[in-house]
C-alpha cells in the first residue's frame, strides 16, 4: 500500500514529469508555446473552409445565446477532440518512450502515462482560456459557465487517462495497438459531431426491414456527449442534460477502472517486456 509520503512524492514526480513533457515539447522552436495554439487554429481554418464554404454545412444558431459562428461551433468540438487524440497517442507511447527509465529506476509507472496526459490537459486549458476570450469578444458571456467547463474537463481527463493507461500497457505487448489506434481515431473523429451538428444523424434507419435506432446507437459514443456538453456550456450557454452528464461520468469512471485493472495486471512484467 502506498504511504502518505509515497503519495506526496508521486505528486511531485507527476508535476516534474509533466513539466518535462511541456518544456521538452517546444524547446528550440522559435515560436515555442504559440505552436500549441497555432495547431487548432489552422485545423479550424481548414475545416471552416471545407465544411462551411465547400460543403455548406448548416448549423443551428446557439440556443439561447443566438451565436452563429461556424468556427466557434467547430472549436467547441475540436478542442476536446484534440485533447482526447493527443492524450491517447501520447499516453499510449509514454511507456515505450521511457523504456530506459522503467528498466533502471523504480517508481509508480502509471505516473508516466498520467503525466503525458496531464501535459495535454495543460494545453487544453490554455486553448480554452484563449477561446473563452474570443467568445467574450464575440459577445458570448461565457464567464458564469467556466466553472462548469472546468468540471467537464476534469471528467474528460478521467476518461482519457483511463484509455491511455489501458492502451499504454497493451502497446508494450503488441505494437499493433498504436497502428490500430491511428485508424480507429479517424473513425472516431467522424463518428463525433465535430464538423457537423448532431441533428444530421437520422433518428432511425431501415435495415433489412427493421427500424434501426441509429441516433441512440450513435449517442453511445461518449465523445458525442462530451462535445455536446462543451457546446452547451460554451456556445449555447445552457445547462447540459443531467442524464447525459451522468452517462459521461459513469463511462469515464468505468474507463479509468478498466485502465487501472489492466495496467496493474500487466505492470509487474513491464521492465522485461519493453
Amino acid at each position: 500500500m502506498a504511504t502518505l509520503t509515497e503519495l506526496s512524492n508521486a505528486r511531485e514526480l507527476m508535476v516534474n514529469l509533466t513539466l518535462r513533457e511541456l518544456r521538452g515539447k517546444y524547446k528550440r522552436s522559435l515560436l515555442g508555446w504559440t505552436w500549441s495554439l497555432f495547431n487548432p487554429l489552422v485545423t479550424m481554418a481548414i475545416f471552416t473552409v471545407v465544411f462551411l464554404v465547400f460543403l455548406r454545412v448548416r448549423i443551428p444558431p446557439g440556443d439561447p445565446s443566438g451565436m452563429n459562428v461556424f468556427a466557434f461551433y467547430l472549436l467547441c468540438g475540436l478542442l476536446p477532440w484534440n485533447f482526447l487524440a493527443n492524450g491517447m497517442n501520447g499516453g499510449m507511447t509514454a511507456l515505450i518512450n521511457n523504456a530506459t527509465l522503467i528498466q533502471k529506476v523504480y517508481f509508480p509507472r502509471e505516473i508516466l502515462v498520467a503525466a503525458n496526459v496531464a501535459s495535454w490537459l495543460v494545453s487544453l486549458f490554455i486553448e480554452l482560456a484563449v477561446f473563452a476570450v474570443a467568445l467574450l469578444i464575440a459577445g458570448n458571456m461565457v464567464l458564469p459557465w467556466l466553472p462548469a467547463v472546468v468540471v467537464l474537463v476534469a471528467v474528460q481527463a478521467v476518461f482519457v487517462v483511463g484509455l491511455a493507461l489501458l492502451l499504454s500497457v497493451l502497446n508494450v505487448y503488441f505494437r499493433d495497438v498504436q497502428h490500430l489506434m491511428a485508424i480507429l481515431l479517424q473513425l472516431w473523429f467522424y463518428s463525433t459531431p465535430i464538423v457537423y451538428p448532431l441533428t444530421v444523424v437520422p433518428t432511425t434507419v431501415e435495415l433489412f426491414g427493421f427500424d434501426l435506432p441509429l441516433r441512440a446507437i450513435y449517442e453511445l459514443n461518449p465523445m458525442v456527449g462530451f462535445v455536446e456538453a462543451y457546446r452547451d456550456l460554451l456556445y449555447d450557454l445552457r445547462v447540459p442534460a443531467v442524464g447525459e452528464i451522468a452517462y459521461l461520468l459513469a463511462v469515464s469512471v468505468a474507463a479509468l477502472g478498466v485502465g487501472l485493472v489492466v495496467f496493474n495486471r500487466l505492470e509487474p512484467k513491464l521492465a522485461e517486456e519493453l
Binding site: N9, L13, N16, L17, R20, R23, V105, F107
Partner: peptide, 28 residues
C-alpha cells in the same frame, strides 16, 4: 543502475536535477 536515467537532453542541468531527484523519490 544507470546514471542520469531520465535526463532530458534539452533541459538544463538544474531542471534535470529536480526531475531526476523526484524520479528517485525526493521531494522539492
Amino acid at each position: 543502475l544507470e546514471l542520469g536515467a531520465g535526463f532530458h537532453p534539452e533541459l538544463s542541468g538544474r531542471e534535470n536535477v529536480y526531475l531526476n531527484g523526484s524520479i528517485l523519490g525526493l521531494g522539492r
